[in-house]
Every structure is written in C-alpha cells, then in structure tokens.
C-alpha cells in the first residue's frame, strides 16, 4: 500500500511539472488558463491523498473547499476573455 501511494505521488508531481511547462510555453491566454484548471484538479487530488497519509479526518475539508471554489477563478478569466464581464 505504501508503494502505491509513492507511485501516485510521483505521477502527480510529474503532472504538476507538465502543466507548469505548458503554462510557461502556452502561446494564447486559453492555454495558460487550461493549465491553471488542470493544476487545480491535481491539487484537489493531492490534498485528499495527503489527508489519507496524515490520517486526520479534518484535513479533507480543505480539499472540499478547494473543489467548490477552485473553478471560480477560471470562469472569471474566461468571461473576461469573452469580453462580457
């Protein structure tokens, strides 16, 4: 079970790095916003798995709040790009 969590953390760290590279390279504003969205989803998953590692039930609330509020920033940026904010 320990090795499974190690492998999952390595996968998520690689995902964070790839999304960050796309954020730096991306030619348009949409690419960078997609990178932010992916980073948010990977962050929620990482928070839940870290909560399991630390064995505290209270820690899951952070991931819950993050999943609720994380997409508002992306929607505001999208409305601004659309010209309709």
């Amino acid at each position: 079970m320990t090795y499974i969590i190690y492998i999952a953390f390595i996968f998520m760290a690689a995902g964070l790095i790839f999304s960050a590279i796309r954020f730096v390279k991306g030619p348009t504003a949409g690419d960078r916003t997609v990178a932010l969205d992916t980073l948010t989803t990977i962050g929620v998953a990482a928070l839940v798995l870290l909560g399991y590692v630390f064995q505290r039930f209270v820690y899951i609330d952070v991931a819950l709040v993050y999943a609720v509020l994380g997409f508002i920033g992306v929607i505001v940026i999208a409305r601004y790009l659309e010209g309709a904010l």
Binding site: Y66, L69, G70, G73, V76
Partner: peptide, 11 residues
C-alpha cells in the same frame, strides 16, 4: 488561503 487567494484575489 484556498478560499481567498484563489477566488477573491483573482476576481
């Protein structure tokens, strides 16, 4: 930090 930094500051 998640509630304020991600949503409100960006807005």
């Amino acid at each position: 930090e998640a509630a304020i930094g991600v949503a409100l500051t960006t807005i």
